[in-house]
Amino acid sequence: MSTLDHPAQSAVHGASEGLPSALAQSHTYTHHGGRPVRTEPRAVRIALILVALGFLGLFIALPLVSVFYEAFRRGWAAYVAAIIEPDALAAIRLTLIVAAISVTANLLFGLVASWAIAKFEFPGKSLLITLIDLPFSVSPVVAGLIYVLLFGSQGLFAAYLQAWDIKIIFALPGIVLATIFVTFPFVARELIPLMQEQGTAEEEAAISLGASGLSTFFRVTLPNVKWALLYGVLLCNARAMGEFGAVSVVSGHVRGLTNTMPLHIEILYNEYQFVASFAVASLLALLALVTLIAKTILEHRLAEEDR
């Protein structure tokens, strides 16, 4: 086939935007979203779809399915027994407490930081945003370690903590601090770009009409960002409940006391209590699924509000 065919096709195509599709298709164009577009041969398309689905099945779908399969391997009774066991309940309770505190802390920080960053112009703004994002690029183990170096028995503040009899490492405060660190950017990074995009006109109007700063925030700014805020909180919560590496370093692994759900899963697994381990894991997998469904719904809302 000569290369001359193609300009000819293009001329036909260009002049015949409204012609019957049969004409376009006869020239190896297929319809995609109502617009004629060149694409790969059918066999290649099917092969690529199969490769993609196979890859995703092998690496993502199967692991997810296997969590529930392994959890229910010995039936419903064994599943329930693993979850209502006192150490498991203690781990669930601790995870809920840690998540509640860290999500609240990051929610407040996210609102405060995004107000300062998005509503005002000042030098060094992009550096500040980079610093807020920093915890995302730190290894979870390093995130735990830095708190041990501050508050551990060999830490920089060890003498003060001993004098005041305050326990941070191997106790709740350490677990909370490490969790806040690894989830630090979640809420802020959802809010900052959105609030920057929305600008300051509405706030300025409210203030010039006599509203106070606080009521401007609650009546103008907050309603404008509520879905993005919820989105950030959701992701922050999922990570807070599931954090393993950082918490593992600062927790001390005391059963029934300083074990969060992920740490409890590890202990059970290392003791070859696979069904119990997967049963507790299935709760976190369920949380992940709920998070993803809620996230998908929220993304729809956000996209609609954008319009």
Partner: peptide, 16 residues
């Protein structure tokens, strides 16, 4: 499904 690795705790992914 692509976002599962973001949402699924690493320990759960590890044992699975």
């Amino acid at each position: 499904l692509i976002d599962i690795p973001f949402a699924l705790p690493t320990a759960v992914a590890g044992i699975a």
